[in-house]
Simulated scan of single mutants.
Amino acid sequence: MGTTQLETVPEPKYWHLKTVLSEALDSEFAVGEILPNERELAARFGVARATLRQALEQLELEGRLQRRRGVGTAVAPPRVGVDVGSESGPRSWPGAPGDAWHTEDHEQAPAPAAVARLLDTGAGTPVHAVRRSRTTGDQQVAAEILYVPADVVPALPAGQDPADSMAQRAARARAVLRELHRLDLQGQDRTVELGSARAEDARRLDRLPGAPVLVVTTRYIADGRTAAVSVATYRADTCRLSFSDADALPLAG
């Protein structure tokens, strides 16, 4: 077989540097150790800072490095295994016994356009938004917003008081979950995408805006319609996701 055009393309400088840096991480640095600043690293390896940044970004994406607010870039520990599929069983509503999430907050607000299409709600129509978080050990690894149309849980009065305390909003969030549990869950489907942390995601996960994240979107079906949509954002630098209700498929290694 002849040489393809792709095979003649030289390896990008940042990719070669990534390999060199990875070897240095293994031999010279301990987990949690802060790397020298970009100027020092660029001088050591004889590259432009733009090339260095590309290599560091790739290593962060692969889970070898973590950027910390106000601290710098540190060597990352091994990724934490997070089982997405069997938190409370493949046919359970969020908040069922065994659920690994902590319910935090509630508000009524329009869902993002993509979620509104899944829910078949009109643009700008307020829905229940339940915020939850997931922690492994002492580290928060994921943040979730569960969107539920108001007519799916009609027992809950519409509207909210801006003066409600955090405890009141958390209680209202738990009430939304209890009402969902009254419905017959017919099925669910799930998608996973690599994304970048938005400002809110970054704040909740203690990441920098734009940091790599894994976005897991779950659609819950009841009474022949989409009754709820969960958008869960996982830290890509620390998480290795598996789906035990499928075949324990690892998504990030």
Rank of each mutant, 00 (worst) to 15 (best):
P157R: 10
G85I: 13
G81R: 14
I145H: 02
L59T: 10
G81A: 09
G98T: 09
D161V: 04
E57A: 15
R117L: 13
G72F: 08
L177R: 11
R172M: 00
L185E: 01
P112S: 09
H106M: 01
A171L: 11
D83G: 10
P126I: 01
T103V: 15
T103H: 06
D151F: 14
R172A: 13
A163W: 07
G159N: 03
D120L: 00
H106N: 08
G159W: 06
H181T: 08
V153K: 05
T73D: 04
G63I: 03
T125M: 05
R69C: 04
A171F: 07
A173T: 05
P90A: 05
T73R: 11
G89C: 02
D161I: 08
A173M: 08
Q186D: 08
G159E: 07
D138C: 04
W93I: 10
S165W: 09
R67H: 11
P126W: 00
G63Q: 03
L146W: 01
Q140V: 15
A143E: 09
L118N: 03
D184Q: 11
R69T: 14
A150D: 01
G81M: 11
G159Q: 04
A96H: 15
R172K: 10
E57P: 13
D105V: 01
A175H: 00
A150S: 04
A150C: 04
R132G: 08
L185C: 06
E62F: 01
P149D: 04
E60M: 06
E60I: 03
E62N: 11
L185I: 06
E104T: 10
Q58H: 12
L180I: 12
R79P: 00
D99Q: 10
L183Y: 07
A116N: 14
A114H: 12
R68K: 15
G85P: 02
P157L: 05
P90K: 00
A158K: 03
P157Y: 01
R174L: 14
P157K: 09
T135E: 13
G122Q: 09
L118D: 09
G63W: 08
H181K: 11
V82M: 03
L180V: 13
R68E: 15
S133E: 12
D99K: 05
T135Q: 10
P94A: 07
L177C: 01
R169V: 02
A116Q: 14
G72K: 08
V141M: 09
A150N: 05
H102W: 07
A74H: 12
G72N: 11
S165K: 06
R178C: 00
P149H: 02
V148C: 05
R182C: 08
D161M: 05
A74D: 07
R117Q: 14
R68T: 02
V141R: 07
L180T: 07
E104P: 04
V141L: 14
V153H: 07
Q140N: 13
I145M: 10
T135W: 10
A143H: 07
L183T: 02
Q139K: 12
P112I: 08
T73A: 09
P112F: 09
V152N: 03
D151Q: 12
G98I: 09
A74C: 13
S92C: 14
P110L: 01
P162V: 05
S165A: 13
S133R: 13
G85E: 02
G137V: 10
P77G: 15
T136V: 15
G89F: 00
T135D: 11
Q66C: 03
A76C: 02
D99M: 06
V84S: 06
P110S: 09
G95V: 01
S133L: 12
P110C: 02
V71P: 08
